[in-house]
Amino acid sequence: MIGKPMHVPSLGARQGRNVILSLVLALLSSLLISSAAYAHAVAEGDKGYIQEISGINILPFIYLGAKHMVTGYDHILFLFGVIFFLYKLKHIGIYVSLFAVGHSTTMLLGVYFNVGINSYIIDAIIGLSVVYKSLDNIGAFQRILGFQPNTKVATLVFGFFHGFGLSTKIIEYDISPDGLVPNLLAFNVGVEIGQLLALSTILIAMGYWRRTRSFWRHAYTANVVMMCAGFVLIGYQLTGLVLS
């Protein structure tokens, strides 16, 4: 974890936020439960359009890739956790690049070789990546395990899983083999554009928040909320796996 060491608030301070935290968690949980099925879902209109076209269609696939990333709240949550304590652009660039390399590799190879993973399992793992990064941010691994996992390796590995999440859903597009490679590359470009848009928004918001005194007072709570969101996503997807 890069940046100022995390300060764990006292029991009294945590108790003072219990009501607010409970309300936030309830709202976030209801949001996730109502929309978890759409985290990587293919909109019917987009799916129908892709199934009807053939040949090289660069712009439509760039649009679909950007749309998928911007609306993929699980990806955004993970990125939010990754940059939470990163202040220097070079550090942000390293971690975001590792994540991009990871998800681009498995997304492209997964679709090209038609390798898909059960969407419930892969989305549960993506939820786990959010939980992992939250625990990392609050220093839980150092306190519980006595060592700090390599965050760069973890970012790359979870990037691979995020990429399989993308490839699994892209396969549902039933893309025509005519122009497959250019269209996949265009989709990946769109994903990176969407990632940059989401990242820019997060960085702007974080920049304002970090300049306030409330940042260090509420940083712990923010990561706990994010961790709970990850657990909700895991639980929802595992429930779906069992019921399916």
Rank of each mutant, 00 (worst) to 15 (best):
I62C: 09
H162I: 07
A222E: 06
I56Q: 05
K67W: 04
I204N: 07
H91I: 07
I50M: 09
V130K: 11
F161A: 01
P149L: 12
L156T: 14
N223S: 08
I33D: 08
F158A: 03
I234D: 03
R14K: 07
Y120N: 15
L32V: 13
F80T: 14
E52I: 14
G194T: 06
W209F: 12
Y95A: 13
I83C: 12
S35L: 15
L135A: 13
P182I: 00
S10T: 11
T212S: 06
L98K: 02
I204V: 15
D178I: 14
G16H: 02
H91W: 10
L86T: 02
N137I: 13
G65V: 06
R17K: 12
T221C: 04
Q142C: 03
Y95M: 15
M69E: 09
L89V: 13
S214P: 00
G12W: 12
L25Y: 09
G102Q: 09
T168P: 00
I50P: 10
L197E: 12
L25Q: 11
K4D: 10
I83K: 15
T106E: 00
I193M: 05
N118L: 09
F84I: 06
F161M: 05
T151G: 12
I204L: 15
A154G: 14
F113H: 06
V189H: 04
G179D: 05
